Lab assay of single mutants.
Amino acid sequence: VDYIVEYDYDAQHDDELTIRKGDIIKNVKKLEEEGWLEGELNGKRGMFPDNFVKEIK
């Protein structure tokens, strides 16, 4: 499942992704941690907030 970024987010920890509006995040999975998703961007896998992105259908 792929998501498109709607709002910029700067990573706060090493396991998070810095994302920018218009980025496409690939292979996204829901995490047990409420409010977070995990996906791949530019060869890096990491977490990001689910309210900054929208699923591409």
Rank of each mutant, 00 (worst) to 15 (best):
E16L: 03
Q12T: 09
D50A: 15
E16G: 10
T18L: 03
A11R: 08
K26L: 07
R45T: 09
G39Q: 00
V28Q: 01
K54M: 08
G35S: 06
K54T: 15
D14Q: 10
Q12V: 14
I56G: 02
N42W: 13
T18Y: 06
I24R: 06
I56A: 03
E16Q: 13
V5F: 01
N51K: 15
Y3A: 14
V1L: 07
K21I: 09
D2P: 05
G39N: 00
L37Y: 04
G22T: 07
Y7Q: 14
E16Y: 07
D10V: 15
N51E: 15
M47T: 12
P49H: 15
Y9F: 12
I19F: 08
P49S: 15
G22F: 09
D14I: 12
R45G: 03
E38D: 13
M47F: 08
H13R: 14
K54E: 15
R20F: 06
G35T: 07
N51V: 10
D50P: 09
L41T: 06
E34A: 12
E55I: 06
Q12A: 11
R20L: 10
D14R: 13
E16K: 04
Y9M: 02
V53Q: 02
L41M: 07
R45I: 09
G35V: 03
E16I: 02
E16V: 06
N27Y: 14
G46L: 03
D15E: 09
L37E: 01
I19K: 00
P49N: 15
K57M: 15
D15Y: 09
E55T: 03
I24D: 01
K29L: 12
F48E: 01
L37D: 05
G39I: 00
D50R: 15
D2H: 13
K21P: 06
V53Y: 03
D15K: 14
L37S: 14
K30H: 10
K44F: 11
E55K: 03
T18D: 06
D2W: 15
V1E: 04
L17F: 03
A11M: 12
W36S: 03
G39H: 00
V1I: 10
K30F: 08
G43D: 08
A11W: 02
V28L: 02
E6D: 03
G46N: 01
L31Q: 11
P49E: 06
G43A: 07
D8A: 04
V28M: 02
K44E: 10
K44W: 09
V5Q: 01
V28E: 00
R45H: 08
I25P: 02
H13N: 10
V53G: 11
E55D: 04
M47Q: 13
I56F: 07
D14N: 12
F48I: 15
E16W: 03
Y9Q: 02
E16S: 04
D14M: 08
L41W: 07
Y3W: 08
N51G: 10
E33G: 10
Y9I: 01
K44N: 13
E55W: 02
G22W: 08
V5T: 13
K57Y: 15
F48T: 01
E40Y: 09
N42Y: 12
K30L: 10
A11Y: 02
K30S: 11
D14E: 14
N51M: 08
K21W: 05
I19E: 00
E55A: 05
D2Q: 15
N27H: 11
R45D: 02
H13L: 12
V1M: 07
I24S: 03
Y3G: 04
A11H: 04
I25A: 01
K29Q: 11
Y3T: 03
D10M: 13
L37P: 02
L17I: 07
G43V: 02
E55P: 15
L31M: 12
V5L: 01
G46T: 01
T18A: 05
K26M: 06
V1R: 11
G22R: 05
D15F: 12
E16H: 09
N42F: 10
W36Y: 11
L31G: 11
D8Q: 07
F52N: 05
D2F: 13
K29N: 08
E32I: 08
V28D: 00
E33S: 13
D23S: 08
V53T: 05
E38P: 00
I56P: 02
V28W: 01
V53A: 15
G46P: 00
G43H: 12
F52G: 04
E32M: 10
F48D: 00
L17E: 00
L17V: 02
K30T: 09
I56D: 07
V1P: 14
H13M: 08
K30M: 09
K57F: 15
F52V: 09
K26V: 13
N42M: 09
I24F: 04
I24T: 04
E6I: 15
N51D: 15
